[in-house]
């Protein structure tokens, strides 16, 4: 069978793995998530409402017929504000369960919240993540946007400093003009 391979290694306890990539990486992340879920419980915190259940189910199906059982191993919660993201990280059990945070910075790039406050909440969140990663595998995906702003970089920098394993992926360049066919 032509199994999908995860391009990222399975995260390990003791360090934070960071994937910096555009939205297209979700498929690969779901493959990695499937690999983790096959081993046991996984917690997913979704900051950008980008969890793709169908892609995950397909990735699981390549390994087992018991898709529903494996899907039940993935515990999901979505955060829509930076307050919620921080509160969720604070509430997570530190019991060795792997934690995957999807599009973590999306909630911190919310212009409705004061900049300093967002920075403070991001610092708090990273501290919490550090604490979680001491006893459990932790991986974070930071989404890169097509037209990044200065703020994107300001919020990405502390995340890059915190992570130990960093994977940076770039979207392929799209040619502005149609390439000649003949």
């Amino acid at each position: 069978m032509n199994r999908q391979l995860t391009i990222f290694p399975i995260p390990k306890a003791g360090k934070i793995s960071l994937v910096v990539a555009p939205r297209g990486v979700v498929q690969s992340l779901m493959t990695m998530l499937a690999a983790l879920a096959l081993r046991g419980r996984v917690i997913v915190l979704d900051g950008g409402n980008c969890f793709n259940g169908y892609a995950l189910a397909r990735a699981i199906r390549q390994h087992t017929h018991q898709v529903k059982d494996v899907l039940k191993q993935v515990m999901l919660s979505r955060a829509f504000t930076c307050y919620q993201m921080t509160a969720m990280l604070a509430k997570l059990p530190i019991d060795g369960t792997p934690v995957i945070v999807l599009d973590m910075l999306a909630t911190f790039l919310d212009e409705n919240v004061n900049f300093n406050k967002r920075q403070r909440l991001l610092d708090n969140s990273l501290n919490l993540l550090r604490r979680i990663s001491e006893g459990a595998p932790a991986a974070v995906w930071a989404r890169t946007r097509a037209t990044p702003t200065g703020e994107d970089q300001q919020f990405l920098a502390p995340l890059l400093e915190t992570a130990q394993d960093i994977w940076e992926l770039q979207a392929p360049e799209i040619p502005v003009h149609q390439l000649p066919l003949f």
Binding site: I43, V44, F51, G53, L56, K68, L71, K72, Q73, V74, M75, L76, S77, R78, A79, Q84, M85, A87, M88
Partner: peptide
């Protein structure tokens, strides 16, 4: 935030 729930 949202309660932790199975992806299923």
């Amino acid at each position: 935030a949202e309660m932790l729930k199975p992806a299923m």
